[in-house]
């Protein structure tokens, strides 16, 4: 007995050593970037750690030289619209593919999967031409509408809807509830963890998106934050300290957002299914 318990303690210690060291490896670059964002251009490339000469000057530079308030506003509006739109559209489609029977379902699902498999690069130019013909460049329409769905999350939602038990839905149906009602009132609450996962992934993905916004926005008043911060990278070189400060302006809001949302992934287990 005694031996057994010390064995468990040993494995616990090893478990903690491994989990903590991996956590350190994972956050190191972020901590380093955070630290670098307060350094001078002279110090930023040095490997030593010193707390002398740290200052807010890089942030001051960004906030005085770039219309960063406008960039934040654009980013928040775009990411919010895209996230909410996606949550609704993907969840509905995912539910239909998981639960409802209709002709052509398999083909449509294969299309949803299939379009993930074509390298986006070859669609770039025709899509850009469409956007310009529609006169959607430099507009919220152009920045949001083409991105209101995601094959990846339709597929994910399908998988999650498949894994919850059907009993509750069937009972509700017998009580006379419509499919729409069942979806919104019963099925969706059961997959809250998946919805949070989707929301986090979508929001962060769109918050960081660079390629498409940089094609659609060609005037500074339409730049999103990552596009605007791209200005810190000059043609021939960039100052790492400024770039790092820019990166922090981009990253810190989403870390906060993640801290808020991650609770729903974990602590909602009581509302989730299997009671």
């Amino acid at each position: 007995m005694n031996q057994n318990s010390s064995k468990i303690n040993m494995s616990k210690v090893i478990f903690y050593i491994i989990t903590i060291s991996y956590a350190l490896i994972a956050i190191m670059p972020f901590i380093w970037s955070f630290y670098s964002s307060f350094r001078t251009p002279e110090d930023v490339n040095k490997i030593n750690i010193s707390f002398k000469n740290l200052s807010m000057m890089n942030y001051k530079y960004i906030f005085t030289n770039l219309p960063i308030g406008r960039y934040y506003l654009n980013s928040v509006i775009v990411a919010a619209i895209v996230t909410v739109g996606n949550l609704l559209i993907n969840s509905m489609a995912g539910y239909a593919f998981a639960r409802l029977e209709f002709a052509g379902k398999d083909i449509m699902f294969m299309i949803v999967l299939g379009i993930m498999m074509i390298p986006g690069q070859v669609l770039m130019v025709p899509t850009f031409v469409m956007l310009s013909k529609l006169n959607w460049l430099n507009s919220f329409r152009g920045l949001t509408i083409p991105f209101l769905f995601s094959s990846f999350y339709i597929f994910m939602m399908r998988q999650f809807f498949m894994s919850i038990p059907k009993d509750l839905e069937e009972a509700a149906f017998i009580d006379g509830m419509s499919r729409g009602g069942i979806f919104f009132k019963i099925a969706l609450p059961l997959v809250k963890p998946a919805l949070s996962t989707q929301a986090i992934g979508l929001f962060i993905g769109n918050w960081n998106a660079f390629l498409w916004p940089s094609l659609i926005a060609t005037k500074k008043e339409w730049f999103t934050l990552p596009v605007g911060l791209g200005d810190l990278e000059f043609r021939y070189f960039s100052f790492q300290n400024q770039v790092m400060a820019g990166t922090m302006c981009l990253t810190i809001p989403i870390i906060i957002m993640f801290l808020v949302l991650q609770k729903y992934i974990i602590e909602n287990s009581t509302t989730s299914g299997m009671k």
Binding site: V129, L211, S214, L215, A217, T218, V227
Partner: peptide
């Protein structure tokens, strides 16, 4: 009317030509 192309300028300019804009 000043426009500032972010990111890959060459690609952006080429795209503008392709779209006749």
């Amino acid at each position: 009317n000043l426009e500032q192309y972010p990111g890959d300028f060459f690609k952006a300019l080429e795209n503008k030509f392709i779209a006749n804009q």
